[in-house]
Amino acid sequence: MIYELNHVGGRVQDLDASLAFYGGLGAEVVDRLFMSGSGVHRVHIQVATGLVELLHHEQADPDATYGLNHVGFMTDDLDGDYARLIGLGYGELSSPRVAGSGQGRLAFLSDPNGVRVELLQRSEEFRVAPITSGPVRALSYVGIAAPDLGAAAEFYGTHLGMEQVADDTFRLGPDAVKLLPSATTTIDHLGLNADEPRTAGADPDGNRVRFV
């Protein structure tokens, strides 16, 4: 069973710059390791209530694209949930395998609008109690592309088991996705709740943050 929207993540060009940006929003590092096999630094930061996974490759790649590019869900039955979703016709990207970190197993598939969805099965829990020392009170939602809104609602609501909390918003665990028919990138922005009005901006890789 899929039981939690665990994180939003992607590749970053300058890890220190990304950590400084999110640190300014009160984020804290809750997990950090180096995957020697792939030469990738993996850092999970928590912004108030939500996890963001930053992946930094030591070896520069001029053809790489940077920015948030997937949403990750926890499951207690990776093989079963993956087979069920692929059987329903969703796109297979990477079949179940041991994670590069050695922490559990993972798989990737595509939602109806091309958003990369990661399924994770592991025992490690990186999320900590809500961080209240910074200006952000909650990661309200991850805004994702959904030009076919009905198909996206069926995928996240019916097949992933998320609770529909608004016409376009689905929650599972502490965090939510917001379906955006007019989005131009698969992960459009992060919606943050702040304790005072703040101006929208973007992190060093161009990922937009919007205060709601």
Rank of each mutant, 00 (worst) to 15 (best):
G67M: 01
D81W: 08
E92G: 07
I131V: 10
E92T: 11
I45Y: 01
S101Y: 09
Q103G: 03
G102D: 09
L93R: 02
D61E: 07
G143A: 08
A60N: 13
H41W: 11
V128S: 15
Y90L: 00
G134A: 08
Q59P: 05
D77E: 13
R105W: 05
I131K: 09
D77V: 07
G50P: 00
G114S: 10
L85Y: 02
L85F: 05
I45W: 02
L51M: 10
P62I: 13
L55C: 10
Y90E: 03
S133R: 14
H70M: 06
G104E: 02
V115D: 00
L68S: 02
P135H: 14
R127I: 09
G37Y: 08
S123H: 14
R127H: 11
V115T: 11
V98P: 00
G102C: 09
G114I: 02
T65A: 13
I45T: 03
V142S: 06
R84D: 11
V43P: 00
G37R: 05
H57C: 12
A99M: 07
L51C: 05
R84E: 11
G50L: 02
S38P: 03
L88E: 06
T49G: 05
L78V: 07
L119T: 04
M74Y: 06
I144Q: 02
D77I: 08
G89R: 12
Y82F: 11
N69L: 12
R84N: 13
E118D: 10
L119D: 02
Q103Y: 14
P96K: 04
E58C: 14
L139V: 09
G80C: 07
R137Q: 14
V136N: 05
G67S: 07
I86D: 04
I86H: 12
E124N: 14
S95C: 15
E118S: 08
V43Q: 00
G104F: 04
V142F: 07
L119E: 02
G50Q: 01
F108R: 05
E118Q: 05
A48H: 00
S95T: 12
G39H: 06
A83R: 05
A138N: 08
V40G: 02
G72R: 06
I45V: 14
H44F: 13
H57E: 10
S133I: 14
R42L: 13
A60I: 13
S133F: 13
L54I: 05
L93P: 00
V98D: 09
P62Q: 11
E118P: 07
H41F: 04
